[in-house]
Design a protein around this nucleic acid. Sequence first.
DNA 1: CGGACTGTTGATCGGTATCAATGCTCGTGG
DNA 2: CCACGAGCATTGATACCGATCAACAGTCCG
Lengths: 248, 248
Amino acid sequence: MTETVPFQTNCRACPLRQKPAFRSLEGKELDFISDFKTGELTVEAGATILQEENKTPHLYTILEGWAFRHKALADGRRQLLNFALPGDLVGLQLAVLKDMQHSVTALTDTTLCVFQRDKVWSIFKDHPTLAFSMTWIAAREEQILDGQIISLGQRTALERLSYLILHLYDRAQHVGYAGNQALDAPFSQSHLSDALGITPVHTSRTLRKLQEKELISWSKDQIRVLDRDALEKLASYESISEDPRPLI
Amino acid sequence: MTETVPFQTNCRACPLRQKPAFRSLEGKELDFISDFKTGELTVEAGATILQEENKTPHLYTILEGWAFRHKALADGRRQLLNFALPGDLVGLQLAVLKDMQHSVTALTDTTLCVFQRDKVWSIFKDHPTLAFSMTWIAAREEQILDGQIISLGQRTALERLSYLILHLYDRAQHVGYAGNQALDAPFSQSHLSDALGITPVHTSRTLRKLQEKELISWSKDQIRVLDRDALEKLASYESISEDPRPLI
DNA sequence: CGGACTGTTGATCGGTATCAATGCTCGTGG
DNA sequence: CCACGAGCATTGATACCGATCAACAGTCCG
């Protein structure tokens, strides 16, 4: 199911860091990161990266692929909390709170940078820039979750779906997974359902409605945003910051 | 509406810090905090502490009272994102992301410690313990928001209400605002509605149902938790960490 | 005393869930 | 190469949770 590959991306030549979406990093911090990273983990689509009960003491950054955080109630109802894309930190709650109340699953085949959790403290002790980045990343996650909360609490299914599509499009675009109206969408309708808090049946109908209005088109593994302005208006969309963000 | 009071709580004698719910702090960090705090702000119930558009560059900690973070859609639909109780940081997103997409309003008369935002960086540069605390606090907020998301996405109104009551009871108890089954509940049913994503009418009916089942009793400004076990089961409740937490 | 706000209750409406049947795609094995 | 089964998506019929509309009661406060 999972395997550690011998070939690893050197942090100094990290392909993510080159992207304009991310802040550049100076020598000392970059050296630390290189040392902080102990390896890479490649998992197949569907594999569990972190599980609620199982306290693997790891902190990861996604290097390539899609994953998602999710949580279940005792009777099995599941809710997708957030997606994770390249550059997103995975396992922060576990690393700092020493407790995690959600699981993380790979959506596509995914490669993660593995960090030594026992060195987390030296980030704070010796690398204020990186420490600030940790807080920054956590605050950004909060902002995304705030958006989900107002979606689930106030928006109708149609609005929610529109919002989610725009949100994912923007995040994907920053890391090169979307562009020119097309979002590479490796998720099934049931993933969308779990994120939106509606049933798969209703997700299907709602997607159809957006297509009939010619706002999007949905084909296997791809969503095309046909009328962004109309979608934004329908969803009452508010984009998250477009500024370069820190990468750990 | 708002006023700065001359009498201020000295951080070294902070009444919150005495409570077992919070971690104690050593000399150097405590000195810094004392210096970091520039004043206190006391606002009346209903006053706006931070507003989405208005970028007051302030970071606060609640010293006394209840507040809440909230967010609205373009057409006026409102969603309460989270409550804030003594010891909770307010304005973190603004402080680190320099962008805030929600507002914060006082629920009761509230006193806040005001920090100098331009000294935020020195937390990271010179006080790793406090820097870690910032990240810790942000991660805890994430955890709470995760809980809200699964509530809004998966739980019925009755389950949601039960969950919220237990959640608020526990948080309030840590800071002395609840105990012996009774939660001092300074919020109206419409506040609950905004948090739960249901209408006030339905909130009233749902509260009534919980009372008929004799799980709670609701009287003006007070909720009594009559049958905690049954509530936990109904809500599929999962408590957040009870460990002492950092206080800035 | 009167008005504003909050909460209660009843009647009806509508959005989404649920149940059920069918089609579609794709991987697997005969 | 086809048959089959397993998921996933579509579509229709019906049920139900919570929204909406409306009227009224209770409380607080000026």
